[in-house]
């Protein structure tokens, strides 16, 4: 049933593809965390945009990531911008998770005591200074675990990139499967890889949470 020789043979191929999966995760997450923060800050700093941003976030969160990936991949060329599959896919993942992250940041900002905002106004700080020096340093540490959970969730979405033929882990496993007609080993290995990564990151997030709790305890 399980062929160890075959397993050793495909392991390097999968390991290579796993690197691309991790790259996609990291780039996607940096994009999501940055864009999410921008959305959350603009929403508060420019009240006129609040409604538009919340509708936009709702739109992105209510539709499947797979369709958004297809949309970016197929629609951009219509406007003359040809993105390769990896860029289009990572961009779609980044934007999708930016919508989720912006809600996390918003929760973080909402938890800042009102006096902090009022004191910033009283001190005549600009909106930029208020966010940079007062609000963000206080708002970010408590939400790090929540952001970490989205990092793991984002990582688990990278197999979707195989739908537009990015050579990440899932695509490599699919190709091995269709060439050799053996799906058992590649698919199981992919599953185990994700399981291992998720368990490790869950443990990391837990210890990070403990660390932050200790630091912010007063």
């Amino acid at each position: 049933m399980w062929d160890w020789a075959f397993t050793w043979e495909i392991l390097p191929v999968l390991a290579n593809a796993a690197i691309l999966s991790i790259e996609a995760t990291l780039i996607g997450f940096v994009l999501a965390a940055t864009l999410g923060l921008v959305l959350a800050v603009v929403r508060i700093a420019v009240p006129r945009t609040a409604w538009t941003i919340s509708v936009l976030v709702e739109l992105i969160r209510s539709t499947p990531l797979l369709i958004q990936i297809f949309f970016l991949y197929f629609v951009f060329p219509k406007f003359g911008v040809v993105l390769d599959a990896f860029t289009a896919g990572v961009l779609a993942i980044g934007i999708h998770y930016a919508a989720y992250c912006s809600e996390v940041y918003r929760a973080g900002f909402d938890n800042i005591h009102r006096g902090q905002w009022e004191a910033s106004i009283a001190l005549n700080l600009s909106a930029w200074t208020t966010f940079r020096d007062i609000i963000i340093p206080q708002a970010i540490p408590p939400i790090v675990p929540a952001l970490g959970n989205y990092l793991v969730a984002l990582f688990k979405e990278t197999p979707l990139l195989s739908a537009i033929a990015v050579m990440e882990l899932m695509q490599a496993a699919k190709i091995i499967g269709s060439e050799t007609f053996r799906y058992t080993e590649p698919m199981t290995l992919v599953g185990l890889f994700f399981l291992a990564m998720s368990l490790v990151s869950a443990a990391l997030i837990r210890s990070l949470e403990r660390l932050l709790n200790r630091r912010t305890m007063r």
Partner: peptide
Amino acid sequence: VEIFRGTSALVQLFWLFFVLPQF
């Protein structure tokens, strides 16, 4: 719970679709 939360939905879908028949 750990297996189904720890791996991605697409992997589970493919595993049940491609691997289970081999068993």
